[in-house]
Nucleic acid binder design. Structure first.
Length: 427
RNA sequence: GGAGAGAUGGCUGAGCGGCCGAAAGCGACGGUCUUGAAAACCGUUGACCAUUCACGUGGUCCGUGGGUUCGAAUCCCACUCUCUCCGCCA
């Protein structure tokens, strides 16, 4: 959500910026009209309430002194209907305003490339060289089943398309990746490990921006009106909602491994093969709550921490600054990390790191008290994948595959695989 | 799932339908004292919204949502959450 003062005072500039993110001009015009109506209505109703409060106090005084206040009571009763009428309209206007505001995306930072689609994304850097193969590298959807570690058919038998069962060294490798990432972020990068709930309330989903606009993308547990988290960003960012933190506590850095659940509505036919786009996948998430003046610095830092995982695993990747049209709803700026997949001869997203500035903080009511007192201020929230475990497993299979169909385990991971150095079909 | 108790400011905890945005204590902050600190003493200390150039003024908020009343933290209803006991259970 954006600040009302911002929308009010800089309507033109904000309108242009939001249009670069695909928002039409109409809702903003409606917003302006409703905002003016709300404020005019407030002035009127508050004046009536003031008079009513004064009269009520007077009645109290008269009664305490044993007098007859029936005339005053009758007078106040009369203005009651008018107050109620105004109140009803005002509540309607308030609801319409917040509904509109919930539909406005965050304002992009000035450094974000402007454009309607991913074609305008800007390449920031490439790290590592794609390996030269002296054979035709296979895609993971061939490698995985051939090695007996990924079973797409049985996953589908249990749960339908976009669900996969891992077996043996595959399951082990994914678990190793998760532990490797968590250890890195907690011991080297200063994050506190959290094991959050995987089912959250509507309120939490609204706090981070998944609701109300993107409800179709989520899995909901109907019987309890809870949502399966689409990312640990939701529980981690909402951890301190409604609280006022001390400035000295900032920055807060949280990391969590969780499964993530996504309905993937509207992505039929995309990435149907393999492990790229699943309804359920594992991810280690990084979340920071920081001082507002430090958030863009923190984004560079957080992105670097996600990159560190790829560097240690010696996987070639590139960093993209997403364009205004390609960024997520809550983000003011986003870097995507894209890992090289030899089986597909292309870079694929493996992490997305965003500075959400005060957008989520305003929705979730995440504030801090400046040292030395003063008004509570909104923190800035950041999140990034560090990394998506399933896609990292894919990258390892494809980048570390050998001519004989086996797959080497990266050095950095071997402490986590119980001595396993190579995955072979024989197990 | 059944029975009961409760939800008040950063925390603990008072609160007769009007004089309650709310006692008191703790904490925090500022000051006096001190070489410095502690102790003691004095003072300050909620959020949001509207309005004003500003000082300020007004409105709303005592778990949430309704209701009764001229007037609700206080009365009524529903819901949510917490605690205790019982049942079930990894």
């Amino acid at each position: 959500m954006l600040a009302r003062t911002l929308l009010r005072d800089e309507t033109g500039r904000i309108g242009q910026l939001l249009q670069s993110r695909g928002l039409a001009a109409r809702p903003l015009e409606t917003w302006q009209r409703l905002d003016a109506e709300r404020r005019a209505g407030l002035v009127e109703i508050e004046d009536l309430k003031r008079k009513r409060n004064e009269a009520s106090r007077e009645i109290g005084t008269i009664k305490r002194e044993g007098g007859d206040a029936s005339a005053q009571i009758a007078a106040v009763s009369q203005s009651k209907a008018r107050v109620e009428e105004l109140q009803v309209r005002l509540t309607e206007v308030e609801t319409e305003l917040t509904d509109l505001e919930h539909g406005f995306p965050n304002v992009p930072h000035e450094s974000v490339p402007v454009g309607p689609s991913e074609a305008e994304n800007r390449l920031e850097r490439q790290v590592g060289k794609p390996r030269e193969f002296d054979f035709e590298p296979q895609a993971h959807w061939d490698l995985g089943p051939a090695l007996g570690i990924l079973d797409f058919e049985r996953g589908a038998k249990l749960s339908g398309a976009r669900f996969t069962a891992y077996f043996g060294a595959g399951a082990r490798l994914e678990r190793a990746l998760i532990n490797f990432m968590l250890d890195l972020h907690t011991t080297e990068h200063g994050y506190t490990e959290v094991l959050p709930p995987y089912l959250v309330k509507r309120e939490a989903m609204t706090g981070t921006g998944q609701l109300p606009k993107f409800e179709a993308d989520a899995f909901r547990v109907d019987s309890h009106d809870l949502f399966l988290i689409p990312t640990a960003e939701v529980p981690l960012t909402n951890l301190h909602s409604g609280e006022i933190l001390d400035e000295a506590q900032l920055p807060l850095r949280y990391t969590a491994f969780t499964p993530c659940f996504r309905a993937e509505a509207g992505s039929y036919g995309q990435d149907v093969r393999g492990l790229i786009r699943q309804h359920q996948f594992n991810k280690v998430e990084l979340v920071q709550l920081v001082h507002p003046e430090r958030s863009f610095e923190a984004l560079e830092e957080l992105t670097g921490q996600a990159e560190k995982v790829l560097q240690l695993l010696e996987l070639p990747y590139q960093v993209m600054a997403l364009s205004t049209g390609d960024m997520g709803f809550s983000a003011a700026k986003t870097y995507d990390l894209e890992v090289w997949l030899p089986g597909q001869q292309r870079y694929r997203e493996i992490s997305s790191c965003s500075n959400c500035t005060d957008f989520q903080a305003r929705r979730a009511n995440l504030r801090y008290r400046p040292t030395g007192g003063g008004k509570a201020k909104l923190v800035h929230s950041l999140n990034g994948s560090g990394l998506a475990a399933g896609r990292t497993l894919i990258a390892i299979l494809e980048n570390y595959q050998q001519a004989d169909g086996s797959v080497l385990i990266p050095e950095a991971l071997r402490p986590y695989t119980g001595g396993l150095e190579r995955i072979t079909a024989s197990g």
